[in-house]
Simulated scan of single mutants.
Amino acid sequence: MSNRMPVKTTEVAFGVVEALLELGGARFTELVDHMDMPKSTLHDHLRTLESMGVVVKTDNVYRVGSRFLEIGAQARRQQPIYEAGRPEVEDLAEETGEHASLSIEERGRAVLLHVAKGANAVNLDAYAGRPTPLHANAAGKVMLAHLPKPRIDAIIEERGLTAYTPYTITDPTPLKRELEEIRRQGYATDTNELVEGVKGVAAPILDRGEVVGAIAVGGPANRMRGERFEETLPDLLLSASNIVELNLTYG
């Protein structure tokens, strides 16, 4: 692996994009104040990004352009698991009436590839491309559990175990005990660990023994309990993940 320092101009350019996303669009002066950089430098970056279609300017307000939608859509289609898993996610959403999703692990985080909402699904602010912490939701934990142990340790060291609710596991020791249990039973659950009032169940997607993703169902805690939470949904997800694995192998 190269130890060379990142290219500063690239970092700054992406910093401009992230600032525009954070601000929801901004005028030039607002962006100067927010980023605390020379006007001439910011102007040059904005002009370049605008010429590439990455940033657009309307009524003197700069916003992130739709070019990222094109880039994101193409990036997603290049993931074999997306085409293999999308139909199963749609079927799960329809059958359960809840929120179903397909995720991958990237750079120590769970990243949503596809989301489908059933008839009774609540708004979980989930969208394709959204990153979530591996330790605080079912999909993340089930992928974390199937990674090599040195990789698990490295992710915990790098990303930490941030508390998102009072129920988030923030101590490596109980987390690792739960990961062992997840490996044993074949699926993971989360109870109010990322968002209070929301519970989830997830199964891993394996390709030649290596975890390549997870398929999950989440919903309000009052509907995710008892036999449904402990047996019905895990069985549905394990069946769906098996189909995705077969699609990856033979599709």
Rank of each mutant, 00 (worst) to 15 (best):
L112N: 07
R130W: 04
P38L: 10
A13C: 10
G108A: 07
F28T: 00
Y167Q: 08
E83L: 12
R177G: 03
G118Q: 01
G25H: 02
N60H: 08
P6G: 14
E193D: 03
E50K: 05
V195G: 03
V12D: 04
L112S: 08
P166T: 14
M37P: 03
R86N: 07
E210W: 09
L112H: 05
H34V: 02
E227D: 04
G200W: 03
V89S: 04
I71W: 01
R86I: 10
V7Q: 11
G209Y: 03
G200M: 09
Y250F: 14
A154W: 08
H34P: 03
S40P: 05
L144W: 13
R183G: 15
L113H: 01
A154M: 02
V122N: 04
R109M: 09
R225M: 07
I104H: 01
A84N: 02
D33H: 00
G72W: 12
A119H: 12
E11M: 06
D171A: 10
A93P: 05
I104L: 00
P87V: 12
Y127T: 13
R76Q: 06
G72A: 15
P148L: 11
N247R: 15
G25R: 00
T58L: 05
P220N: 07
I152Q: 15
A93H: 00
L69N: 14
N222R: 01
G15T: 02
D235M: 03
R4Y: 12
R159F: 00
G129M: 02
L112M: 08
A13T: 00
I81G: 13
T173K: 12
L92Y: 05
S40A: 08
I152V: 15
N3G: 07
V142K: 10
A119P: 09
R63C: 06
L49Y: 15
E106R: 01
K176H: 14
P174S: 06
V244W: 02
I169C: 14
Q79L: 07
I81F: 07
R77G: 03
A73N: 13
E11F: 01
P131Y: 12
L248F: 00
A214D: 05
A13N: 09
E157T: 06
I156G: 08
A75Y: 13
Q78E: 14
T249G: 05
N120H: 12
K39F: 01
G65L: 03
P80E: 08
A154H: 11
L23E: 00
T173I: 08
A100S: 06
A73Q: 11
